[in-house]
Simulated scan of single mutants.
Amino acid sequence: MFYFLANVAVAAVVSLTAWVYIPGGIWHPSQQVVRAAASRLKPVVEKRAAYVRAALPDWSKYTFQYQGQTFRGKKVLYVNAYCRPLVPPGVKLKHRVIIKRFVRVNDGGSCYFQAYYDPVAKKYLLVGFNGPVPGPAPRPGI
């Protein structure tokens, strides 16, 4: 489920080691666009998680896949995030697994989410967690 978000302005230096480009989009985002999106993502996701009373996994566990797409006639950076490595149980990894196709999960709560970043407005338009998020039920009227 996706929700519209208020603009959250944040400036930070961000490492893109956990950000993976997925080929096949409508346009190719520059590193400048990706860095801007990466620097603004965490506070937006934290705000959304607080709104639905969801606990987020450690941010360093996420892998962020991205692609240049369009949404409602605008160029956007589509971000798909997941926090669990896709390996068989019991296998220990020394390095992050890089997957060149979008990881699609139909549930998983706050471990899996998608977001749309508008590089012109420099803000996230939507963010949504996959399926119900663990934690207390949302407050009435929200």
Rank of each mutant, 00 (worst) to 15 (best):
R48F: 09
V97L: 15
N130E: 14
K100N: 08
G128I: 02
E46C: 10
A137F: 13
R101K: 09
K42Q: 15
V103A: 04
V76H: 04
P140D: 11
M1D: 11
Q32D: 13
A50S: 09
K123G: 04
P29T: 03
I22T: 00
A36L: 10
F113G: 04
V87F: 09
G68N: 02
A12D: 10
V14D: 02
P119G: 08
L86A: 14
Y112T: 05
V14P: 01
V52C: 12
V127E: 09
T17R: 14
G68S: 04
R96F: 08
V87A: 15
N80Y: 06
L126M: 10
V45A: 11
T70W: 05
E46L: 12
V76M: 06
C83N: 15
F2S: 14
V103K: 05
K92P: 01
Y112P: 02
F71N: 08
P57D: 12
N80H: 14
V14I: 11
I22S: 00
P140V: 11
P85W: 01
A9H: 15
R53M: 03
A115I: 06
P23T: 09
V87W: 05
A38L: 12
P23I: 02
G108A: 10
T70L: 04
V33G: 08
S39G: 15
V97K: 15
A38W: 09
P29H: 01
V13Y: 01
G109H: 02
V52W: 08
P43D: 08
C111I: 01
K122T: 11
R72P: 00
A6P: 06
I98P: 00
L56Y: 06
Y82T: 07
F113M: 09
F129N: 11
R35T: 09
L41M: 13
Y78E: 03
K42H: 15
K92C: 10
K94E: 07
I99H: 07
R48A: 14
P43T: 09
A81T: 01
V133Y: 03
D107K: 08
A121L: 10
C83L: 08
V87L: 09
K94N: 06
Q69Y: 08
L16H: 08
Y112L: 05
V105M: 07
V91E: 07
F129P: 11
R101T: 09
P140R: 13
I99N: 07
V13L: 08
Y116A: 13
A11T: 14
P119L: 08
P119H: 07
V14M: 06
G24N: 02
Q114S: 13
F113R: 10
A115F: 04
I142G: 12
K47E: 07
V79M: 05
A115W: 04
Y66P: 00
K75V: 00
P134S: 15
V76G: 03
P57M: 10
V105S: 04
L5I: 03
V8I: 11
A11C: 06
V127Y: 01
F129I: 14
L86W: 13
I22M: 00
F102V: 05
R84G: 01
L56Q: 03
S60G: 13
I22L: 03
L56G: 04
K61G: 05
N130P: 01
K122H: 13
R96H: 09
W59D: 03
N80Q: 13
P140A: 13
P132C: 00
K75C: 03
Y78W: 11
